[in-house]
Amino acid sequence: MSDYFSLMFTVVLLSLVVNIGIALYGIFIKPSLVKKFIALTIFSDSINSFAIALGFRRVTGSYPGVAVLSDVPRGVEELRHFSTASVDPLPQALVLTAIVIGLAVYMFLTGLIMLYYRHYGTTRVDAARGGSRE
Protein backbone atom coordinates (compact mmCIF):
# COMPACT_ATOMS: atom_id res chain seq x y z
CA MET A 1 0.00 0.00 0.00
CA SER A 2 2.69 2.44 0.98
CA ASP A 3 4.71 1.72 -2.15
CA TYR A 4 1.66 2.16 -4.34
CA PHE A 5 0.96 5.58 -2.87
CA SER A 6 4.53 6.84 -3.23
CA LEU A 7 4.67 5.56 -6.81
CA MET A 8 1.48 7.35 -7.78
CA PHE A 9 2.54 10.54 -6.01
CA THR A 10 5.85 10.45 -7.86
CA VAL A 11 3.94 10.08 -11.13
CA VAL A 12 1.98 13.25 -10.26
CA LEU A 13 5.20 15.17 -9.57
CA LEU A 14 6.87 13.89 -12.72
CA SER A 15 3.86 14.94 -14.83
CA LEU A 16 4.23 18.42 -13.38
CA VAL A 17 7.93 18.43 -14.33
CA VAL A 18 7.05 17.28 -17.86
CA ASN A 19 4.44 20.06 -18.06
CA ILE A 20 7.10 22.58 -17.04
CA GLY A 21 9.34 21.25 -19.81
CA ILE A 22 6.64 21.40 -22.50
CA ALA A 23 5.62 24.92 -21.46
CA LEU A 24 9.26 26.11 -21.51
CA TYR A 25 9.60 24.62 -25.00
CA GLY A 26 6.56 26.65 -26.08
CA ILE A 27 7.95 29.84 -24.57
CA PHE A 28 11.33 29.42 -26.28
CA ILE A 29 10.44 28.00 -29.69
CA LYS A 30 7.02 29.25 -30.75
CA PRO A 31 7.18 32.53 -32.69
CA SER A 32 3.67 33.74 -31.88
CA LEU A 33 3.40 35.98 -28.82
CA VAL A 34 -0.11 34.69 -28.05
CA LYS A 35 1.21 31.11 -27.98
CA LYS A 36 4.06 32.24 -25.75
CA PHE A 37 1.47 33.85 -23.47
CA ILE A 38 -0.55 30.61 -23.20
CA ALA A 39 2.63 28.64 -22.52
CA LEU A 40 3.62 31.13 -19.82
CA THR A 41 0.32 30.67 -17.98
CA ILE A 42 0.75 26.87 -18.09
CA PHE A 43 4.33 27.22 -16.84
CA SER A 44 3.38 29.30 -13.81
CA ASP A 45 0.42 27.04 -13.01
CA SER A 46 2.72 24.02 -13.00
CA ILE A 47 5.17 25.73 -10.66
CA ASN A 48 2.30 26.63 -8.32
CA SER A 49 1.04 23.03 -8.41
CA PHE A 50 4.51 21.88 -7.45
CA ALA A 51 4.39 24.07 -4.34
CA ILE A 52 0.96 22.65 -3.42
CA ALA A 53 2.22 19.09 -3.88
CA LEU A 54 5.16 19.82 -1.58
CA GLY A 55 2.68 20.87 1.13
CA PHE A 56 0.82 17.57 0.96
CA ARG A 57 1.45 14.96 3.65
CA ARG A 58 0.21 11.58 4.73
CA VAL A 59 -1.57 10.55 7.89
CA THR A 60 -1.42 7.02 9.29
CA GLY A 61 -4.78 5.32 9.18
CA SER A 62 -6.78 7.92 7.24
CA TYR A 63 -6.70 10.55 4.53
CA PRO A 64 -5.36 13.98 5.62
CA GLY A 65 -7.89 16.75 6.19
CA VAL A 66 -8.05 20.38 5.10
CA ALA A 67 -6.40 23.09 7.20
CA VAL A 68 -9.77 24.37 8.45
CA LEU A 69 -11.24 23.75 11.89
CA SER A 70 -14.76 22.42 11.41
CA ASP A 71 -15.95 23.81 14.75
CA VAL A 72 -14.73 25.87 17.68
CA PRO A 73 -12.28 23.64 19.58
CA ARG A 74 -13.16 22.80 23.18
CA GLY A 75 -9.71 21.92 24.45
CA VAL A 76 -6.03 21.85 23.64
CA GLU A 77 -6.23 18.13 22.84
CA GLU A 78 -8.67 18.84 20.04
CA LEU A 79 -6.18 21.30 18.52
CA ARG A 80 -3.39 18.78 18.88
CA HIS A 81 -5.51 16.19 17.09
CA PHE A 82 -6.33 18.74 14.36
CA SER A 83 -2.66 19.45 13.73
CA THR A 84 -1.82 15.76 13.40
CA ALA A 85 -4.47 15.20 10.71
CA SER A 86 -4.15 18.30 8.52
CA VAL A 87 -2.04 19.23 5.50
CA ASP A 88 0.54 22.05 5.53
CA PRO A 89 -1.34 25.37 5.04
CA LEU A 90 1.72 27.54 4.35
CA PRO A 91 2.30 26.69 0.62
CA GLN A 92 -1.42 27.17 -0.01
CA ALA A 93 -1.30 30.65 1.51
CA LEU A 94 1.70 31.59 -0.64
CA VAL A 95 0.20 30.22 -3.87
CA LEU A 96 -3.18 31.82 -3.21
CA THR A 97 -1.92 35.39 -3.62
CA ALA A 98 0.44 34.39 -6.44
CA ILE A 99 -2.46 33.21 -8.62
CA VAL A 100 -4.46 36.44 -8.34
CA ILE A 101 -1.40 38.70 -8.75
CA GLY A 102 -0.40 36.53 -11.72
CA LEU A 103 -3.77 37.16 -13.37
CA ALA A 104 -3.35 40.94 -13.09
CA VAL A 105 0.16 40.74 -14.54
CA TYR A 106 -1.11 38.54 -17.41
CA MET A 107 -3.75 41.15 -18.17
CA PHE A 108 -0.98 43.77 -18.39
CA LEU A 109 0.89 41.45 -20.78
CA THR A 110 -2.30 41.11 -22.85
CA GLY A 111 -2.48 44.87 -23.22
CA LEU A 112 1.16 44.96 -24.32
CA ILE A 113 0.58 42.24 -26.96
CA MET A 114 -2.45 44.12 -28.30
CA LEU A 115 -0.33 47.26 -28.70
CA TYR A 116 2.40 45.18 -30.36
CA TYR A 117 -0.14 43.94 -32.90
CA ARG A 118 -1.37 47.48 -33.56
CA HIS A 119 2.19 48.60 -34.26
CA TYR A 120 3.56 45.70 -36.32
CA GLY A 121 0.41 44.09 -37.73
CA THR A 122 1.46 40.65 -36.54
CA THR A 123 2.09 38.82 -33.28
CA ARG A 124 5.28 37.18 -34.51
CA VAL A 125 8.05 38.09 -32.12
CA ASP A 126 10.67 38.54 -34.84
CA ALA A 127 8.68 41.35 -36.48
CA ALA A 128 10.30 43.76 -34.04
CA ARG A 129 13.70 42.91 -35.53
CA GLY A 130 12.58 44.01 -38.98
CA GLY A 131 11.40 40.86 -40.63
CA SER A 132 11.35 37.12 -40.43
CA ARG A 133 14.36 35.23 -39.14
CA GLU A 134 14.14 32.38 -41.62
Binding site: V12, T41, I52, A53, I99
Partner: peptide, 18 residues
Protein backbone atom coordinates in the same frame (compact mmCIF):
# COMPACT_ATOMS: atom_id res chain seq x y z
CA UNK B 1 -5.68 17.69 -8.48
CA UNK B 2 -5.71 20.53 -5.94
CA UNK B 3 -9.00 19.26 -4.58
CA UNK B 4 -7.53 15.81 -4.01
CA UNK B 5 -4.38 17.32 -2.50
CA UNK B 6 -6.67 18.93 0.13
CA UNK B 7 -6.33 22.57 -0.94
CA UNK B 8 -9.92 23.89 -1.15
CA UNK B 9 -8.78 27.51 -0.91
CA UNK B 10 -6.68 27.12 -4.01
CA UNK B 11 -9.55 25.41 -5.86
CA UNK B 12 -11.85 28.31 -5.02
CA UNK B 13 -9.41 30.88 -6.40
CA UNK B 14 -8.06 28.75 -9.25
CA UNK B 15 -11.38 27.81 -10.86
CA UNK B 16 -12.60 31.40 -11.45
CA UNK B 17 -9.15 32.70 -12.37
CA UNK B 18 -7.71 30.00 -14.62
Amino acid sequence: MYYILMAPDIVLVYVPVS
